[in-house]
Design a protein around this nucleic acid. Sequence first.
DNA 1: AATCGCGCCTGACGGC
DNA 2: TGCCGTCAGGCGCGAT
Length: 274
Amino acid sequence: MPELPEVEVTRQGIEPFVCGYRIDKIICRPKTLRWPIPLKQLQSELQGQFVQSIKRRGKYLLFEMPSGFFVLHLGMSGFLRILPEFVPPQKHDHVDFLFDSGRVLRFNDTRRFGALLWLGEQPFSHSLLAHLGIEPLEPEFNGQYLFQRALKKKTSVKTYLMDQKTVVGVGNIYANEALFKAKIHPLRPSASISLKEYQLLTKHIKLILKHAIKQGGTTLKDFSNADGKPGYFSQSLQVYGRADEPCLNCSTPIQNIRVGQRSTYFCGKCQKGD
DNA sequence: AATCGCGCCTGACGGC
DNA sequence: TGCCGTCAGGCGCGAT
């Protein structure tokens, strides 16, 4: 579930149940997810402490604690839920945070690519966060930025866009969607895209991400619902997953190719310039 | 320095 | 029914 909108919706959804509350206990069932879970450290730094804020950087969630930051990445299949009280874990429910309110923050991750880390007081200097690109919803993310940076690059525009050092939070689905909206062929060299095209592209990235966050926020009125699992907003996807179906602009069948080992969908007529 | 491909892990699905 | 290959929204790592 994890591109920027899903992570941001998660952040907003859990915030009212987590911020200002005390973590009484952490229950962790596996020893390892993507990496070994520093359980002892998490217990000593988090248990008995109040969560001060939850921030997001790219696809990382940062829980601000009195002595530093606990950082969570949802990986490919991870999601967080708020339970009104402790109930026995189901399959792939890996970690529970028990709060003084009685509620439980529960992490479920089928594919176990998620990560839990203690990054201390300077999380942004940690190697995982230090080299991340700019936030797509910030004003500094604009056509000029993408254009200038691309001049030195040799990759395709889609790979360039999904590189977290370029811009954070744009994953495979929204990269496909944004390139379609901007009418840019995913295989075009990133350095061949004009400033005007990059301006259009950044505009659509912002629109798509904002729209998805808004949809997620309204879909998930009650994040503590057991079914409150943020999903992708497939009703608004125009190309992703639509191989051989008609383009919503011109009815040409949508093509599916692989770009950098990732499934890529586009309209060969609307997105010219391979 | 930049780029590419692999592999981590589980589950769903389609073909035989 | 079962087995096998392929695919899935991410990302760090080693090889080039």
